[in-house]
Write a protein that binds this DNA or RNA. Structure first.
Lengths: 247, 247
DNA sequence: TTGTTGATTTCGCAA
DNA sequence: TTGCGAAGTCAACAA
């Protein structure tokens, strides 16, 4: 890896046209020939860059980086303040935990958090328009009265009376799992539900949008379509796993 | 900006958990305290990082970078191979051209490219579910016969006969502008059309999806919904602007 | 190769 | 500040 600190101007012509007026910046040249132009602020995104595979041609005071698609990054060097090269070697790579796949796996093992008696039919339930994250069966049509003492029935721990605790038939539920649910997630789940409900062996299939956070517009759209929204707490779900206890 | 090349291991605990085994990497510390960990390959995205605002605490052989949300990046240094600091100053920033806003502005000035006699009603036409990129009126209901000589009418330059060249009422058209149109753009435009067509003062409103490139699946879905697809050429649109000539 | 989806997305704009 | 959509999105994975 080569590190150059220089006063420079930069021009990119490719998918768009972009220009940087002269200033002091860090130019990072990686082993694969890719180039990053960083300022002393902002986020991890460079001001300008060229991704590999690409080719760097270095003339007197001008670097030209070009890729196969003909996109071109031209760096004009006014003054070089630092120039050093370092041998880094290959990187063992990053090990991650806690992404959406994990969230789905955790929820799959604890579909009971979505409702009493819910069971998992399968993860990645296949359809021609894509896999449904989780296909579940709910606990069946319970009729819950507001207060006990209105008649026969089973008194639950939370004080509600369950009149029909043993349902005739439990219903299918398609669950869409997201870290952050947007309107797109509602559209996607809607397409799944449209498809699934054309199958008389499955219909009626209801929908649940389960996410760590749900955009207000997504929540609104879901409501108009009868889709239930559930906010997940990753730490709680993981806590269930660790402790082996519910709630 | 401080540049450190060092053999190090990295742990991030925050929105997820991530770990990097010991290897030689570049550590970039920006003026705002943000830290980037780069390998000698991959894309412009660092292996690991902490975005500003955050605070770097440097002890003997351990850097701890923490932000307000309690996310933490811990870098353990085994061996420092390079350490230099540079004063870059503020950056004048990037100037871009060719993004969607530009495309929309160009098309707004030349809605005639969508059809003869088309006029712009307004850009960013407001609806409760979001702004429609361009609201237009078309040239009215022309009835075009396949061949001349079938009756009275105006003979057009292209050989077609226009029976009703002066329309009684031109129709509204909602135009969705994208650089690259996907199925999402069709869904979005469909929502707008559903809403707009509930207004008797506007209905019937037709739809146009205008983009520099249109995904095949988006084109197919648009067709089934009666939405017209138009491929835009940025250079041509800009050329119109520069030259002042159509086509 | 192409398409689809997720991302510690980041970034910019507007309410 | 928050929310939402675009991005030279990038990148991983499946068809």
């Amino acid at each position: 890896m080569r590190l150059v600190v220089a006063r420079c101007s930069v021009d990119y012509v490719g998918r768009l046209t972009a220009h940087l007026d002269p200033a002091v910046r860090l130019l990072m040249v990686k082993a694969d020939g890719s180039v990053l132009v960083h300022a002393d602020g902002g986020s991890y995104k460079p001001l300008n860059w060229m991704s590999p595979p690409c080719r760097l041609v270095e003339s007197d005071e001008r670097w030209t980086v070009e890729n196969k698609a003909g996109e071109r990054l031209v760096i004009t060097l006014d003054e070089v303040l630092h120039d050093s090269t370092h041998d880094l070697g290959a990187d063992p790579g990053l090990v991650k935990d806690g992404v959406e796949a994990h969230l789905q796996a955790l929820l799959a093992e604890h579909v009971g958090t979505l409702g009493d008696g819910w069971t998992l039919v399968r993860r990645e339930f296949p359809t021609p328009i894509g896999p449904v994250d989780l296909m579940c069966r709910d606990g069946g049509p319970e009729i819950v009265l507001d207060a006990p003492g209105d008649g026969p029935g089973e008194l639950r721990a939370d004080g509600a009376v369950v009149v029909a605790p043993a349902p005739v038939r439990s219903g299918y539920v398609a669950v869409e799992v997201k870290r952050r649910a947007t309107i797109d997630a509602v559209e996607q789940l809607t397409r799944y539900l449209d498809y699934l409900n054309r199958d008389p062996l499955l219909a009626p299939v209801s929908g649940v949008l389960a996410a760590q956070s749900i955009a207000p517009q997504a929540r609104t759209l879901a409501q108009t379509r009868g889709i239930r929204c559930v906010v997940l707490d990753y730490e709680s779900l993981r806590g269930i796993e660790v402790d082996g206890t519910l709630f």
